[in-house]
């Protein structure tokens, strides 16, 4: 137990911070913050952001970054939204459930394609992830804008809206989906062979490759995984807004990086935990909702996230300073 706490000290500290924030918000906004209604609201918003952040985390664990994560989400959503609109045809086409299933399938397929493009350039050509994803960001965004002419796509079955807006008792469906994603992501990243390889590649790609692991495949997998999660987040966003539009969620990219770093994943790769990111997402969501309730402009969330991001890393810098190891060059007998 002691070992466990020591190993996950960062996560426990984050959890402590989250609890403190909840208490502070509860005191600052009595009767408004610690309510079922507010938690339900946070649940609606947190899911899509959390899923994107987990998708970002796994890329950063390999030492990469995925700046196109929101754009692949929206591209996939838009294509699927158009398909759903056509198939549903204002209620005169196919029935609700098949339309939705086809829509989800299309989202996932397009997302996988986006992920494979990123993965191909990073893993097989060796271009820096930041350049690749900056480029694909423009390309995905361009395609999304091109097919929608910048406007929103809507006209889905009523049932589809339920995904993003419906609840089971008091618990939003999105929250349930989020929990499933967390569990699956946890199992895949921290307990599967691929996941272990992800950490190893992030720590030392060469040593991992030299140990007989196909690191290119591992990296490709990371970008595909990230894109599939982005597609899922896209579905939630489309459903919540009841439309798909190219510029939805644009501030999520930065926030996802911030949540990942805040959650304890090193930007250089090789470390991090899914649960760390999940707690960090909750912290950012509490700040954002708290600001909202306290009538602080929502843009201050961006400011706070930016400051937290830089602050956490600056803190790490001071903590790590002076822990350089001496190396022996010649063994003197």
């Amino acid at each position: 137990m002691k070992e466990h706490i020591k190993k996950n000290a960062h996560q426990y500290r984050l959890l402590g911070l989250l609890v403190i924030l909840l208490i502070v918000m509860g005191i600052l906004a009595p009767g408004k913050f610690l309510t079922v209604k507010n938690f339900k609201n946070m649940g609606f918003q947190m899911a899509e952001f959390g899923i994107l952040a987990i998708g970002m985390s796994v890329v950063i664990m390999t030492g990469g970054i995925n700046l196109s994560i929101v754009n692949s989400a929206m591209l996939a959503s838009i294509v699927s939204a158009m398909a759903m609109r056509t198939l549903y045809n204002g209620g005169e086409g196919m029935a609700d459930i098949p339309v939705i299933l086809i829509g989800v399938a299309i989202t996932v397929v397009i997302a996988i394609a986006c992920g494979m493009i990123n993965g191909f350039f990073v893993a097989y050509i060796g271009v820096l992830p930041i350049l690749v994803t900056l480029g694909t960001q423009t390309v995905f965004d361009g395609i999304a804008l091109n097919i929608t002419r910048g406007s929103g796509v809507s006209g889905f079955p009523k049932l589809f809206q339920k995904i993003g807006a419906g609840t089971l008792g008091q618990i939003p469906y999105t929250m349930l989906i989020y929990v499933v994603v967390i569990v699956v992501a946890y199992l895949m990243i921290e307990r599967s062979r691929w996941g272990i390889s992800v950490y190893m590649v992030g720590g030392n790609e060469k040593a991992t490759r030299f140990s007989g692991i196909n690191t290119k495949k591992t990296i490709m997998g990371v970008y595909v995984f990230s894109a599939v999660l982005s597609g899922l987040a896209g579905i939630l966003m489309t459903s919540r807004y009841n439309s798909a539009k190219a510029d939805y969620g644009s501030s999520y990219t930065m926030q996802a990086v911030a949540a990942t770093v805040l959650g304890g994943t090193s930007i250089n790769g090789g470390s991090g935990h899914v649960l760390g990111t999940v707690i960090a997402v909750a912290i950012i969501q509490v700040i954002s909702s708290g600001f909202n309730i306290l009538k602080i402009n929502r843009n201050f969330t961006d400011i706070a996230t930016g400051l937290i991001l830089v602050g956490v890393l600056a803190l790490n810098h001071f903590v790590n300073k002076g822990s350089l190891k001496k190396r022996v060059r010649v063994s003197v007998k």
Partner: peptide, 13 residues
């Protein structure tokens, strides 16, 4: 700080 993080942070603020 890694340049991408530092500048993303400033941009966000």
């Amino acid at each position: 700080l890694p340049p991408i993080i530092a500048t993303l942070g400033l941009d966000s603020v």
